[in-house]
Design a protein around this nucleic acid. Structure first.
Lengths: 355, 355
DNA sequence: CTGAAAGCGCTTACAG
DNA sequence: CTGAAAGCGCTTACAG
């Protein structure tokens, strides 16, 4: 049998309350008493049952998720997953609040974080903008004992406890590697469409992409990055113009959102580049991949990210550590051959009949 | 406040014990009484606190993991992850048993499953061989109320509750898709090295590979599959001979294990094929990828698989369902640009200071 | 500084 | 068929 606090109390010759004080680092324990308890714990190999503790404590976790109100498919998926997690969490002593903040608006994000600071939840997760002002509020949140997790786009790592998202530099490198191999040695121009260079995830992808391109594909010309503002209309206009102006366009890397615009520009043009990559899986990009308008998609799983953020935040609140490998968010590389099945329902485990 | 059984009992005008009987479908409840309780549950939106229930029940989960005693790196990783999970599980009312079964030995696997049947654990996870005899024991396990999960290699789906592993047909298709694009339109021969065609995961990969190759690369000749028995020595000999015999070899797909042999054969030969793919990430394949001896690796994460198997088994034992998307095992496509960092330690979350 | 007692939300004999 | 009471492993006032 696993030892309990009772056993520890007996061995140490103290009461349950004292064992509790030692275990939870509470004040008012004589040093000699503390030692007795610690020795007993060691001897028995005791570790406390955290779910019993949470039951007794009536602990309720309160987490705030702040997400830009962008209507692109990925941000929508993120909000959908947060809503789903909130439903499930009701049965797990966890209350999740979803807060929309206007996109591309540093002031609005800052205000939302300030509000969170006032409410003092156990943790805050947010899609970050890596600026001085944002870092400053984030640090104040941490100082106030609130767990801080960045989602999808990171800030400097002294301004948060944990980042949940892909390694964007590696993503950019990977795209360049694929492009080099898919295109072969031929010459020509390669274009990059970003959402905005003020977004750290976009900058990181661009940086990774450029570094590998320069090393591995010196014969290809990388054009100055375009800014599509993650807006399908803008992206469409820019891509259409690009394709008509540059006959030698062999590669196109769409770093940000607005892929509806990208795909419709590609569909309208006969002479599409030999290799097109975009980020994030949604109805539009999946269809384009299947039809050959896009050659590869790099994706991150919004569901994994939200579940990971919650696990991290909860561990943080309990002063536990997480399993690092479990929390690493993978870059999924999708070709038309490994698109996930549309119908996840086929994976549902039918509960066994009564035993 | 979330309603508790107490609230339900009050509203229904019965005792706690009766509410418990209804909730857990126990016998000896008058139909009218049951109805009163059900109405109260609906009205309050009650759902029981499963961790409190487990505490009271002193429920201990007992799971058996049966893994071939193969010494290839992937099976080793699987065993390591099971051992790690066992450590963690001790604090979560879960006892995990790791059982080695001689590899490539159907009788031994059958015997191990029979033994499990005798012990009646709550669940069994095993790396399957898809044969009549194995399916038969597996069905008897299920009939006995034991949760049955296949790991890495599946059986027919009426002989298990759940499969934890990648979609191997899709993996084969993906390799063919990459190969087609990497090689371009040139002519030549493509070879496939399997471990054994009696293994379902290997057969599935081969099937997927062939179907896409035929459709997309009709100009390439696919050679008859080789069987390396997952043995580095055998694999090395076969690959060396292959490279010396077939000057027109442009692609090589290693479906099984024994990659040490593959890599050393490749290293010794000047004229290596234009595109080489293998499965599973380990020290040897990572190095080969970095050095350009291998062009791509398809990998599955042993840690994710073990954690998923445990979640599924536990859900099964509690008659709960899982989150399907969370349990889907991804095919990781690795190029030298997106190799995961060696040192996962950098991802560890430092617990917050005391609040 | 320390301990006895009640309680968290459930389950389990046991009595009736 | 139904209920009162004790207990699972912890925490929390409260008393001393």
């Amino acid at each position: 049998m696993k030892p309990t606090m009772h056993d520890v109390a007996n061995v140490a010759g103290v009461s349950l309350a004292t064992v509790d004080r030692v275990i939870n680092d509470r004040p008012n324990v004589r040093e000699r008493t503390r030692q007795k308890v610690i020795v007993a714990i060691e001897r028995l190999g005791f570790s406390r049952d955290i779910s019993a503790a949470n039951l007794a404590r009536q602990r309720i976790y309160q987490f705030d998720f702040i997400v830009p109100d962008n209507d692109n498919p990925f941000m929508k998926a993120l909000r959908r997953e947060i809503a789903a997690a909130r439903e499930r969490s009701r049965f797990e002593r966890t209350i999740i609040e979803l807060i929309d903040a206007p996109a591309f608006d540093e002031g609005a994000l800052e205000a939302a974080l300030e509000e969170a600071l006032a409410r003092r939840p156990d943790g805050v997760a947010f899609v970050a903008v890596d600026s001085d002002r944002i870092r400053a509020v984030a640090r104040r949140l941490m100082a106030a004992g609130v767990g801080v997790v960045t989602l999808v786009s990171d800030v400097a790592n002294d301004a948060r406890d944990h980042y949940v998202g892909i390694d964007n530099v590696a993503a950019g490198c990977t795209v360049a590697g694929l492009l080099g191999r898919f295109i072969g040695e031929r010459r020509g121009a390669v274009a990059v469409m970003t959402g905005s260079l003020s977004l750290r995830d976009h900058r990181d992808r661009l940086e990774g992409f450029r570094s590998v391109m320069q090393a591995e594909c010196p014969t290809l010309e990388i054009l100055a990055p375009l800014e599509g503002r993650d807006d399908p209309e803008v992206v469409k206009r820019l891509v259409s113009r690009l394709m008509s102006e540059r006959e030698d366009l062999v590669g196109l890397y769409s770093i940000g959102a607005g892929n509806d615009g990208l795909v419709s520009a590609l569909a309208q043009n006969e002479r599409r580049p030999r290799f097109v990559v975009a980020h994030e899986l949604d109805a539009t990009t999946a269809k384009a991949l299947r039809e050959g308008l896009i050659d590869a998609i790099l994706a991150q799983d919004a569901g994994h990210e939200i579940r990971s953020a919650i696990r991290v935040l909860r561990a943080d609140a309990d002063h536990r550590s997480v399993i690092p490998a479990e929390e690493r968010i993978r870059i999924d590389i999708l070709l038309k051959y490994n698109l996930p099945p549309d119908n996840e329902a086929s994976h549902i485990v039918a509960p066994n009949p009564e035993r």
